[in-house]
Design a protein around this nucleic acid. Structure first.
Length: 504
RNA sequence: CGGGACGUAGCGCAGUUUGGUAGCGCGCUUGGUUCGGGACCAAGAGGUCGCGGGUUCAAAUCCCGCCGUCCCGACCA
């Protein structure tokens, strides 16, 4: 596996390959999510879905195809996606000289756009569902695939087709919709930090980075190990834009006809990429226990047939006892594979804990516990680190320690990522410092004062490949970055700092 | 769509300059010996050399055309 320090993008691809998460498909830009990768997504879905339900949402499903005319209704929205839409124009194939071709006779009267997001088709239905304030709010989420015809793709981070969830809500008042937008951002932040163990900054996008058709876009931003930012979730306050373009009105308590207020919010399989780039190391995938499809792998070790029988019996018992604690356990009893090979394989797949059961453990009534990672110490060698991951523990104690150990690992991953982010964040006041931060020091989150406009944002992007990731919420700003100042580019007075970074 | 590279076994590649009957590593199958950090030995299976045409006694190799993929520039969850 390519080390991170040698070639970060290649390392990322190696982690995915060795972790058996996904691979490229015959269709350019699309990916096949393999069982282990999909299992991680399923864990994410479960965690998120529970949170959506807990905040009063229900799931529904809207179609993949959107009539072309729907997309032209909301002008800004349409313009935002126009350049990346796949369009279905025919509905039949035929065989010509043994070759299958599109039947030109089957041309559709109206082309169908494959959803890049579902606002338009959902609001066309909401129009029929909403007449009175009594019909509000509508709090619907859908789990779906969407297609955005990207030119440059990367597994999980940006693929032509991706899986996501999109929430679409309708409210009687602006205040309620604004509140919903913030609530769902909090749900995402809670998931990111407490489940995925990825620390995030909550903030607001600048008008230039805003979702097409939104009045306000909120986001959570994470910092990856290469110093690049990753947008991990967005929540949009759509105002009455979609209600107006789809003509969705309701009669208020006072008998007044009013346009509905809307929100939409989403996270995607990109989160798997965030997970990889936040926690993984040069041995492969590292997973927070809460998202690990397998918590513990049990590996039997033996020489003779007699030993094999005894060791397997014990290994099976250990696995069963852990399963009864509600843990996901894999007993790797494959023949003909060296134990060492199994270690590498399960480490590359990110399994948090390994239990080795051998003849010596039977003798001593112990188990060998190996953690996928331990927090690094200053100046430690690879050998020392590996040794520290491994402990021999009396059997009963070992079984009882698994759950607490997983909890510890979950906390440590978050803490490690937070320390990394702090180290790679800097409060910056001058262009000189800004330039050297990104040119020499690898970059990260740059906290800078900003009072520029859209064009000036582009100028920064051209010069440094950096963008404003977000305008952080006041409670997200560290002490040293608080206060007023002057815009780093224009020198104009500025009331607060923004986060600039290179981004995925 | 412009600039660059490549297409040979499931994967990674050599062979192409100088035409001569298809090769290596990994993986896979079988048997044996192994097994506390990536095993070894032996025997096997596996190919329209991207596609089409041409030159030639003979083409993976030379010529022409096409197709496809990857990397770099204009988009973005």
């Amino acid at each position: 596996m390519t080390p991170r320090a040698t070639n970060y993008p290649q390392w990322y691809l190696d982690v995915i390959k060795r972790g058996d998460l996904a691979e490229n498909s015959p269709v350019r830009g699309c990916m096949v999510i393999k069982p282990h990768g999909y299992a991680i997504w399923e864990k994410m879905q479960r965690e998120l879905d529970d949170r959506f339900k807990a905040t009063g949402h229900v799931n529904a499903y809207f179609p993949l195809f959107i009539p072309l005319s729907f997309l032209t209704k909301e002008e800004q929205h349409a313009a935002g996606f126009a350049k990346e839409c796949a369009v279905v124009t025919h509905h039949r194939l035929k065989s010509v000289n043994g070759e299958v071709v599109v039947d030109p006779e089957s041309k559709l009267d109206e082309p169908l756009v494959i959803r890049p997001t579902s606002e338009t088709i959902i609001w066309a239905q909401y129009k029929n569902w909403i007449q009175s304030y009594r019909d509000l709010p509508i709090l619907i989420n859908q789990w779906a695939n969407v297609v955005r015809w990207e030119l440059r793709t990367r597994l999980f981070l940006r693929t032509t087709e991706f899986l996501w969830q999109e929430g679409h809500t309708a409210h009687a008042t602006e205040a309620e919709a604004v509140e919903e937008t913030a609530r769902m951002l909090d749900v995402y932040a809670d998931f990111a930090e407490n489940v995925a163990a990825v620390p995030v900054i909550k903030g607001r996008k600048t008008p230039g980075e805003r979702f097409a058709g939104a009045l306000d876009t909120l986001c959570i931003e994470g910092l990856m190990q290469d110093g690049k930012a990753l947008q991990m979730g967005t929540s949009h306050y759509l105002g009455q834009n979609f209600a107006k373009s789809s003509d969705v009105t309701f009669l208020s308590k006072e008998g007044k006809r009013e346009y509905v207020y809307a929100t939409s919010w989403g996270v995607s399989t990109r989160l798997v990429g965030a997970l990889i780039m936040t926690h993984s190391d040069d041995n492969g995938l590292v997973l927070p226990p809460k998202l690990a499809p397998i918590h513990v792998v049990v590996i039997p070790i033996f020489k003779t047939d007699a030993e094999k029988a005894l060791v397997l019996e014990e290994a099976t018992k250990v696995a069963a006892e852990l399963k009864s604690q509600g843990l996901a356990v894999k007993l790797d009893d494959r023949d003909g594979i060296m134990p060492g090979a199994k270690y590498y394989e399960w480490e590359a797949k990110g399994v948090p804990l390994r239990i080795e059961v051998g003849p010596k453990d039977l003798e001593k009534g112990s188990l060998c516990l190996v953690r996928r990672f331990v927090l690094e110490k200053e100046g430690e060698t690879e050998q020392e680190l590996r040794k520290r991951r491994k402990t021999f523990v009396p059997r009963m104690e070992a079984i009882a320690s698994i759950k607490p150990t997983l909890d510890t690992m979950q906390r440590e991953l978050f803490e490690r990522a937070r320390v990394f982010r702090t180290k790679r964040s800097r409060v910056i006041n001058t262009m000189e410092e800004f330039e050297s931060y990104f040119a020499k020091d690898g970059g990260g989150f740059a906290w800078v004062h900003w009072a520029g406009n859209h064009e000036q944002e582009d100028e920064m992007a051209k010069r440094f490949e950096t963008t404003i990731r977000c305008i952080p919420f006041p409670d997200q700003i560290p002490e040293e970055a608080k206060g007023e100042g002057k815009c780093i580019l224009t020198g104009q007075p500025s009331t607060q700092r923004v986060i600039m970074a290179r981004a995925y």
